[in-house]
Design a binder for these strands. Structure first.
Lengths: 265, 265
DNA sequence: TAGTGGTCTAGACCACCGG
DNA sequence: CGGTGGTCTAGACCACTAA
């Protein structure tokens, strides 16, 4: 059953191989769109067994530089479109300017076309019983009927983010646009402002963790890749939480930016 | 070489086994402090090969419920002390109250003792040539000499966070406390305010990604576990960045909270 | 030293993808 | 159909930890 060289090396062979492949991608030897050599070819090239190459490729996938599909192979991803998600996207001027929050993102990448690649798919808009944690945030009893708006966002054709907004029924019942796929210029926040609500602040909480199997398939991620879970409360001057947004996204190539005023309190 | 049952199942065996173990932990069958049965014992119990158990345990580790060490085994972690890291920690009142920012954290967990478990170890304080990205943020040429303050934070005895602050030399040269391990009540921000600087805002950028091998060992993480990389600019009213803080932490059980004022601009 | 996890091998069968 | 990745096996040797 083979010579069994053993694990005596300082740095394991599979890590060496993974680093070598990652370097080749970063150095441009393997360009975006190229296929990484197949595992069986790597087995020959490096003179190791399939299991070792397999482990190496797990590392390469974790680097986020490659997209692996089953019967096909591992393709080097396009120049990763680093997205900047800034707290500035909630500036009132953006809403008045007709931009929804998610369109107020900007791109760090030089080719600032990334905004054009954004697509939204609405999966569900309608009544729903508020889940536990959401109800807490909205200040309503668990199980209360709320309006849910469940969307899936695409970037370059691949799903990168699911977002569900929950709004108390009495808040939304007289705003018909909130029940339609396109809530109009400025997004749902602009409609809420039209209806007389004034926002005081938005409170976002973020956690990062490895994707579960279900999430990995929903977002077309390599299993175990990190995801960021974001929960946002939209709070009015009246102190009421009129929306909770529950967002899950691939941590992959996204940068969050928050500007914290050094308020003299 | 065995019967090679193959991968024909809808859900792979190693995922089933991993889920089963995770359920046992969540259900309390395996309590905090308990050792998960050894891999060889799991091989017998489930009647699968070592490689399959190995893959299952990788999944279990990724769930963050378990801490695996080499010659020892996998121990179920204590009730994860969920830490809340709020943007409120930069409130001026905290500085004037004598609290450094990192002590202004609060605990979500019921036993609010987690603050007492915090320890800091200073690894280096002194001059350093500013790294590329840091120099950019400070608005100085790369390679300029700056003051670096490199710390390692512990929680319950285990390292959970490394942080390095970079400050321009001309800013710090007349503030001796910034060269000492303990900068005094309110931390370095209070000392900068004492010296006449007034903060306008703090700008934090966050990214999440899998830990590199080096980072995993530095923070005592399971390899591949997600980490959060945080960079913060401290900006004065004069528009100057007087500090850049570079922080790396286990994404494990930390929650970031940001309050975004809905400024009417 | 006994037991644990970590690495590696040389094979097998399967499911998915393209032509 | 042939090639690709995904799962699994039954072993081997090694490094770490604790008694």
């Amino acid at each position: 059953m083979g010579t069994a060289v053993g694990g005596g090396r300082a740095v394991p062979r599979y890590v060496q191989i993974a680093d070598e492949i990652i370097q080749q991608i970063r150095a441009g030897v393997l360009k975006p769109g190229d296929l990484v050599p197949s595992e069986s070819e790597l087995v020959e090239r490096y003179g190791v067994s399939g299991g070792t190459i397999r482990k190496a490729m797990v590392e390469v996938r974790a680097s986020g530089l490659v997209d692996t599909r089953h019967g096909k192979g591992s393709m080097v991803k396009d120049r990763p479109p680093v997205r900047l998600r800034s707290s500035d996207r909630f500036r009132a001027s953006h809403r008045r300017g007709g931009k929804a929050a998610y369109l107020a993102e900007s791109a760090l990448a030089e080719s600032a076309q990334s905004g054009a690649m954004a697509k939204v798919s609405v999966l569900y808009i309608g009544p729903m019983e508020a889940p536990e944690g959401i109800a807490d945030r909205l200040g309503v009893p668990a199980g209360t009927q709320v309006l849910a708006r469940w969307r899936l966002y695409f970037r370059n054709g691949v799903p990168v983010e699911t977002a569900t907004s929950y709004l108390p029924w009495d808040v939304v019942k007289d705003i018909p646009q909130l029940f339609s796929e396109d809530p109009g210029p400025g997004g749902i926040y602009a409609r809420l402002e039209d209806d007389g609500h004034t926002f005081a602040e938005f409170v976002e909480t973020l956690t990062a963790r490895p994707a579960s199997k279900a999430e990995a398939s929903e977002l077309a991620l390599s299993p175990g890749a990190p995801v960021v879970h974001l929960l946002r409360n939209a709070v009015t001057e009246a102190g009421r939480v009129v929306e909770v947004c529950d967002t899950l996204m691939a941590a992959d190539q996204i940068v969050f930016e928050y500007r914290i005023p050094a308020a003299a309190d």
